[in-house]
Simulated assay, not measured.
Amino acid sequence: MEDQNMNSDEENKSSGDKEFVEKREDASKNMETAVTDSPSEIIDTSSAEIAVAAEVTPVTSEQTDTPAGLSQPNLQPTSDATVPTVERPPREPINIKIIYNKKKYDHFIDINCTILELKCDIEKLTGVPVATQKVMYKGSTQDTQTLKQLKVSKSANKFMVIGSTMDDLLKVATPDIKAANSSGAGTATATSKEPLCKQTVHKKVLDKHGKPEDVAVGIKGAALPLPNTPLSGMYNKYGGKTRLTFKLDSDELWIGTKERTQKIKMPSIKDIVSQPIEGHEDYHIMGIQLGSTEASKYWIYWVPAQYINAIKDTALGKWGEF
């Protein structure tokens, strides 16, 4: 009985072993099939991706810099493209007269040139640097103005130049010591004199007529260019209302009163002196030297202080401060 049981167990074991072996063989075959089929699938997939990639248009570096939704502009010029040019007005030469330091210069220049360009020509003619020039034509001028804008013509073509040459500036910077020592006594005498407003002849005029009501407002310590209108509201030694008009086109200074207008050629003016009025330092007493003697001075009272330098500069043809 025991032998029969043992034989039965052995048969079951062998049959189980056989089944196990068969399962292993099946599993092995499945694995071989999987290994064999897998590369072909990978190859097929890679080929499909390569085919798709081949259809994609290559992206250039220029396209990568262009924002999405915007097309790259065509920067290459077309055959019909033209470059615009700025046309300068045709040259219109005109003869002008330049007056500097009582000398006159004839000069041809394009009427479309600016005052700054004219100043460059004036520096070559007179030696006055552009930076120190003041050019006047019927009043003050601006560097950006053209001669055409100023309405320069054959009949109105005179320019007054005010300024100092480099030699003049150097002379002022290095004064003559010997001359200063030799004139020391005279300087002391001159400085010891009473101010103009305290001298009897001028004090009488000031006390008698007082300050004019219609005189322009004076500004102490200022230096302004001459206005475009005559200076008025002042009076002369007789108390007569006086106005000053600078006629640069004819190089004249007009001194007008109620009775008459005296037209003075500016080159004939020898000197101009002035002093502030004490207690009213925003106004000056001014004397215009018309001859060689003290009696030839034309005295004007209550001249606004801010115009004193401009009057001297224009009448004498050089900077009063130098």
Rank of each mutant, 00 (worst) to 15 (best):
W302K: 04
Q199S: 03
I96R: 02
I50R: 08
G320E: 14
I177P: 02
P39W: 13
V172D: 05
A51L: 15
G317D: 06
V86E: 15
S40A: 15
G233L: 02
A180F: 00
M166D: 09
E10G: 05
V52G: 06
V303L: 12
I109E: 05
P227L: 15
T242V: 15
E194V: 04
A310H: 05
T146Y: 04
K270F: 05
G239Y: 05
Q63D: 14
I162H: 06
Q72Y: 07
T64S: 12
G240L: 03
D282C: 04
G163I: 00
T64M: 13
P175G: 01
A223W: 01
V217Y: 00
V56T: 13
A185S: 04
P195K: 11
V56C: 08
A173K: 11
Q4I: 09
S183W: 00
T174E: 08
D214Y: 06
Y307H: 12
G233E: 03
S140W: 06
E2T: 06
A156G: 07
Q275P: 04
E19P: 01
V172S: 05
L253Y: 10
D44L: 13
K203D: 07
V172F: 10
D313T: 03
P225Y: 14
A180T: 00
W299C: 03
T45G: 13
D106E: 12
K103L: 12
T189M: 10
Y298S: 02
A222W: 04
A310M: 09
L118E: 03
S182F: 00
D3S: 08
H284S: 08
E213F: 07
K208R: 11
Y235Q: 02
G320H: 12
Y298C: 04
T144V: 12
V86S: 15
K138D: 11
A34F: 10
V205R: 01
T36A: 13
K247W: 10
V303F: 11
H284C: 06
E55H: 07
V86N: 14
K119P: 00
Y283K: 01
G320V: 02
S79F: 09
S140M: 11
I264A: 03
W319C: 12
S40L: 15
P93R: 01
S296M: 03
A34L: 11
P58M: 07
K265V: 07
N157T: 04
T82S: 11
T200Y: 01
A48I: 12
M286V: 04
M1N: 07
G317H: 03
K158S: 14
S153W: 05
K13D: 04
F159I: 02
N181V: 00
H202G: 03
L170V: 08
N74W: 06
E2I: 04
V217E: 11
D143T: 10
E321D: 15
D65G: 08
G127R: 02
A185G: 01
K119C: 05
E194A: 10
S71V: 08
Q149C: 03
T33R: 14
D65S: 15
E123L: 03
S183G: 07
L150D: 08
S15Y: 09
W319D: 14
E194M: 08
T64D: 08
L118H: 02
V205L: 03
D3Y: 06
K13N: 04
